[in-house]
Design a protein around this nucleic acid. Structure first.
Lengths: 159, 159
DNA sequence: TCCATATATATGCATATACAGCTAATCCCA
DNA sequence: TGGGATTAGCTGTATATGCATATATATGGA
């Protein structure tokens, strides 16, 4: 079929495009997942990232920017920017920690709490849809997620 | 250890933060991979995305924006913007297709070709590093990538 | 107490990514 | 052949993400 490709100059380059690059494969999977979950949450005006942020703010006793960034294995500056639309729309508020005024302690507003609960129902639908897709594809893919979680389980720690 | 978390209001919310959200887990894995590969390629002034773009431009007989976007399962507009820094830095050129002037046919410059070859060596080092990490974690994770590729193998087709 | 160091956050800058909507070119059918 | 439908690409807008750096606060010695 494919007379459209030219020969590779090095084995590495051939491998890169063959689908075996861990990074490109993972990123492609990520794009696909985000599209699916974001679509499921769109009616609530939230992205999957924003839903996760709201959930962390809800479930940590003292949610700060750096703490959530550590838990999500993200750069603090990215986290900081992700909070802005949520504050702008009145879903969370923030105040300096009395014990350490460098820290910014976050909290859900009532509206933020309602949005979180409502969106979580549609999150679950997306989650179930992926589960069904996995069943169609066989058991290997189920193990996939366990593997990803193992890889990512350097975080853990206390809250 | 963790007295820092509060109880979940719904099972869904507890699950969301437990690490079993396919979307969040995949995205976290993606962030980790991108950091690793981008660091490995930094000395060449390329990101992993840009390396992949150069490789596709090199290996398709008639590389166009939409074709590469389809192959990478990305939105065409995102692809279009990703090409800009590469054109700006003189690594690729573009010209309208003579047969269909809507299409933009891409080509590597000499410098683009050199960068591609040079960066591919360091790509391979990153790839091998991930392989080694997987071995430490056991065989499950090896199967992980096969699963991701199966999931993502709706593209295929002829370039 | 004062300064060097470390920590928490924010900003500047750049890429990555998607969706909606726009224009130009092509295609297809009545 | 004329015009609607389709396709390719671009731009506007918004979030996602990281690195380098700036600022403010805290901390720990000398």
């Amino acid at each position: 079929m494919s007379t459209e490709r030219r020969p590779a100059e090095t084995p590495a380059l051939a491998e890169l495009l063959s689908g075996s690059c861990y990074c490109l494969a993972t990123r492609r999977a990520s794009r696909r997942m985000v599209r699916l979950y974001d679509a499921a949450l769109a009616e609530h005006g939230l992205t999957i990232s924003q839903l996760a942020l709201l959930a962390w703010v809800r479930y940590l006793r003292k949610p700060t920017v750096q703490k959530i960034a550590d838990l999500m294995e993200m750069d603090q500056s990215a986290l900081s920017r992700g909070l802005m639309p949520l504050e702008r729309e009145g879903l969370i508020t923030s105040a300096p920690d009395a014990d350490d005024r460098r820290k910014k302690v976050l909290a859900l507003t009532d509206e933020g709490g309602r949005r979180l609960i409502a969106a979580a129902e549609d999150w679950e639908k997306a989650q179930e849809e992926v589960t069904r897709q996995q069943e169609k594809l066989g058991a290997d893919v189920a193990r996939l997620m366990a593997g990803i979680n193992d890889l990512a389980k350097s975080e853990a720690g206390s809250d």
